[in-house]
Design a binder for these strands. Structure first.
Lengths: 257, 257
DNA sequence: GTCTATACACCGATAGAC
DNA sequence: GTCTATCGGTGTATAGAC
């Protein structure tokens, strides 16, 4: 589905042409979305902007849903790429998490800021992922999106709990989960997702994710406009505070190896 | 704009008829939205469901935008009403906020839960308010919505900071705001909105709001489905934890009166 | 692989009769 | 106040020629 996969067998001319066309169509669709929002996406409009007719598109995407699915998948991946890249290129944090006040920016905050930045830069694509599902679109059994969500939460889990051991997380100061919920989570966590995260860490992760996501959503949809030009600063402060609160709830471990 | 305002001069028969018709139209539009989402709202569909023709609707609403505006306003008010009602009928909290662990549910948590409950019960109307603005709809200079937002944030501000004085809030343990942001906030806060809330309390309120809203948005749009049937519990835990964190950041005041 | 032509649905809005 | 009729636009999708 992706345009560029330069591995293995070399592509034939036909295949390369086809991939290039698909890439071009996706790009046109994305700029279409960027201009008028996801709801405005239509094959006709895309075709128009490419100087083609609708029928040409039907050759590459058998229906509108296929195009939408490809766009959603790509958006998930682009967002995750952006966050991953920001994390990868961030400087190492100097002290341990117990250190009272790092002057440097924690990588979790950097990750959150790149999440926000992507959403601000691509509000419509962000909406495509996290907003209301498109009318007349039915997702294909959640295949690709589930995988993308897992990738994202993996990144954030790593950064949010960086420097803490499983034992520490298991002892985090968190309201007690009901037995049923605890069982449900442990069942869900064990097999594949989020490598063996202790169940008390789950509400912490969800809360943090919720806060980050909520602030971004409010900003993107214009509900925090009263902050004016200081949205980025406000977000930064919130994320710092959130991280502090999270770390306060995790007990100090052994004297660091 | 509201159907029922039984104060002052009695309405004439014509006016009562008119109000009833408007009410009926709004109800039909809302159930239309509830079925197919806000994007599916159309005068024709509403007319169909009422057994009328489109032109009859144009008598009550001169354009689609007017109908949408009325729906948005009503949604804001209904949501605020629901939260206000939940807060009003909640039992008083027993201890002071400094009291270590109230066994009762703090009213802030009750307010948050009623916010979530309304969103879960009316996901499409919630979307209408907080989701992407409708295509081809331009809001009328933000008149009513601004008022509604103020009302909402007023309620939550009261509950979040219940029991704390302005002096305590002013001394809250919060990362320092930049001078520019601080100035901006104080300018904004002084005149009308949020009665003289000290500026350090603003990021706390926004963070809390963001977390609450984010969790609701994620749930309503199906991004926390892995929690299964325990969404309400997870939300409750998060809100409790959030409130704890907030209270920890506000210093204890004088020995209570 | 791209085109024209077409079928059939939806929408907002207006004109004018009753 | 509600109707029929209509205009001009949107869209998805298909058939068949080249």
């Amino acid at each position: 589905m992706n345009g560029d996969a330069p591995a293995g067998a070399p592509l034939t001319l036909r295949e390369r042409r086809w991939a290039a066309a698909v890439k071009e169509i996706l790009a046109a669709a994305e700029s279409q979305i960027a201009e008028n929002g996801p709801a405005a996406l239509s094959l006709r409009a895309v075709a128009r902007s490419l100087g083609m007719t609708v029928q040409a598109l039907y050759h590459y995407f058998p229906s509108r849903d296929e195009l939408v699915t490809a766009l959603i998948t790509k958006a998930y991946e682009d967002l995750a790429d952006a966050v991953q890249h920001a994390v990868d290129t961030a400087p190492e944090e100097p002290g341990h998490p117990e250190g009272s006040e790092d002057s440097d920016v924690p990588r979790m905050v950097i990750a959150a800021e790149s999440y926000r930045q992507w959403a601000v830069d691509h509000p419509e694509r962000f909406q495509l992922i996290y907003g209301a599902p498109l009318r007349h679109y039915s997702a294909p059994t959640e295949g690709s999106s589930t995988r993308a969500v897992r990738r994202m939460s993996g990144i954030f889990m790593n950064e949010l709990f960086r420097g803490f051991t499983s034992e520490q997380l298991a002892a985090a100061d968190t309201p007690a989960l009901s037995p049923a919920l605890r069982r449900h989570l442990e069942e869900f966590l064990s097999p594949d997702a989020l490598g063996g995260m202790p169940s008390p860490a789950v509400p912490i992760l969800i809360s943090a994710w919720g806060q980050m996501h909520g602030l971004v959503v409010l900003e993107v949809f214009g509900h925090t406009s009263f902050v004016g030009a200081h949205q980025a600063e406000m977000f930064h402060l919130s994320m710092r505070t959130m991280l502090q609160d999270v770390r306060r709830r995790i007990p100090a471990g052994e004297p660091a190896k």
